[in-house]
Write a protein that binds this DNA or RNA. Structure first.
Lengths: 221, 221
DNA sequence: CTATGATTCAAACGAACGTATGAATCACTT
DNA sequence: AAGTGATTCATACGTTCGTTTGAATCATAG
């Protein structure tokens, strides 16, 4: 009997939880689903993580720590290259959203599963999740807002903040990829297969985001 | 004793469910919360709606029927005015998203509560909700996609569909308004109060959406 | 007033939930 | 080989969930 035991129980729980939380949401996923699909004992989650809430936080922390650090590194590098001059807006947008989207190809960092989980969770109603994400993101958001302020001195700061918000929404929704409205189904244009679609999603979304960011300012009537 | 009884139990359940589903999500809201806050008996929901799922569907149908009919009417009117010529893209976008956003001011149609519920639900993981929304939206989406195809003949149809998708995401996230990342907090620019913010959200979002829709086409390297 | 169908009510059902417990088993040191 | 702390295990606890039931109460028509 190939009684494999303890090939990192923690990691197997995290992987399974990530996938199930993505598919059915936090409230819609039970501990018994997680532990049974991960082939671990029911009590393993509480032993290793303490509680279901802590497990959820660890699922995110495992990915977000790297992502947000990477975002900081990339922005550091861009600002160093600019040598005091403002960084181009499109480069800032790519550093924030492109770095995120390129995780889709990196299975060792969660790949598309984590991206969809993140996209869906940004609008999750659970209080503790929102609070946790807000805390994790706070300092990165501040850095990027400041960079955009300098890059677009002629645009009111309030406008930039709002447009950052809109860009987050477009990205979140794009990667959540619920096909909630079956927008993309039964549509035979260009015969793109799913692999191709993922490859082309990044430039497509980037064009859209930059277009929105640089749009003419609204006239308040 | 002002023993008020049966001032439309159904409506009171729907209003309460709408508010609670918005605040805590479908799975996060229990029948007992709903019936207790609506001051009706626990069995009332099953009596009037059959099940929790049917209640959720009725919460949406009550608002979406009017919204999507109105969207159809407005597009009918625009196309009649255009007399065979394509309708301007900005008018199409306003007919779809503006009609939605202006519900925020109409308390009789759910107001901001329903808007936030809808925004959050578009990325909800529950299977039956996504299937229901897809069905409710199908014909409206098709009409609007066709209108955009005619309005932007030089843009590949696949690109238009994707950008429609992105616009939906930006809008959904903007109205979900979770402040998930506390993007808008502790920021003292322009001293906008919340009323002002809601008023100005529509033109702000519209500028962003049109900018994204009309952005230069992406170059696939 | 009485009959009838619609609605409300308190109470209970079985199932599923997150968590806790204490014994059994593992990996590893001495 | 014995001991020790980490991990896994089966099992149970108390709670909450959505739904159901059958009697009580309502509104209304004959």
């Amino acid at each position: 009997m190939a009684e494999v035991r303890n090939i990192d129980t923690r990691e197997r729980i995290l992987d399974t939880a990530e996938r199930l939380f993505m598919a059915h949401g936090y409230d819609g996923t039970s501990m018994r689903q997680i532990t049974s699909e991960a082939n671990v004992n029911l009590a393993a989650v509480n032993y290793h993580f303490g509680s279901k809430e802590s497990l959820m936080q660890e699922v995110f922390r495992r990915r977000l720590d790297w992502l947000n650090d990477e975002r900081m590194r990339v922005l550091d590098h861009l600002e160093a290259e600019a040598a005091g001059q403002p960084v181009k807006p499109s480069l800032i947008v790519d550093a924030f959203f492109g770095t995120l989207l390129r995780m889709a190809d990196d299975k060792s960092r969660g790949g598309m599963t984590f991206l969809r989980l993140l996209g869906r969770t940004l609008t999750d109603p659970s209080e503790f999740i929102r609070a946790f994400l807000a805390h994790e993101y706070q300092h990165v958001m501040d850095r990027y807002k400041e960079a955009l302020f300098r890059a677009l001195p002629e645009v009111p700061k309030a406008e930039i903040v709002w447009r950052f918000h809109f860009m987050l929404g477009a990205t979140s929704y794009a990667i959540a990829g619920t096909d909630a409205l079956r927008l993309v189904t039964d549509w035979q244009i260009e015969a793109e297969d799913s692999v191709d679609r993922l490859d082309r999603l990044v430039p497509r979304l980037m064009s859209f985001l930059i277009g929105g960011l640089r749009a003419p300012l609204p006239q308040f009537s």
